[in-house]
Amino acid sequence: MSFGSILLMMFSAILVENFIFAKFYGCCPFLGVSEHPDTALGMGMAVTFVMTVSGGVTWAVYEFLLVPAKLEYLKTVAFILVIAALVQFIEMFLRRFIPTLYQALGIYLPLITTNCAVLSAALLTVQNGYSFIEAICFGLASALGFTLAITVFAGVRSRMAHANPPEAFKGFPLTLIAAGLLAMAFSCFSGIQF
């Protein structure tokens, strides 16, 4: 894959095939941790960090461990273990060596293991047969798409906090409807021709 096509793939992963609005990967943190723009950005950054690293690591595990041993069907088990271990490791590493970053991202890290965006990026990488560089770029781009979605959405929600909707719509339903409207806005990207 040339540099141009990698850029194209990343662009498409961020906007056109946005993990949240087109594929629904990672909806739980998207709906749960988007109340304030600051925390949303923190979550987005933590996810970006983990997904980029896990993109490379799961690729290596698949190519160098599972494929030679003909155990491709164990990929779900292997990937989720790798991701859980990686999150733990990143948490310890940040706490010891980059405490400021740990303070910013620390509380979000344990939540990431069960963020399906991370696992689906790893599985999609295998499904699409990406190379190592592509795997990392795909992880990064998908995570940036997630970060974009969650930060924009947090902005919308912080405005919505002052609204006075009917009793039944308070809280979660209104959040979902706002997400629907945002998804509609994002769907315009699918009309882009390259």
Binding site: F21, A22, A168, P173, G180, L181, A183
Partner: peptide, 22 residues
């Protein structure tokens, strides 16, 4: 059937559930 419809349908269904529970 589009993603936006999924969010909005679920939003209205949960609103109905909240209405009943309220």
């Amino acid at each position: 059937v589009l993603p936006a419809g999924a969010f909005i349908t679920l939003g209205f269904i949960i609103a109905a559930v909240q209405k009943i529970r309220n």
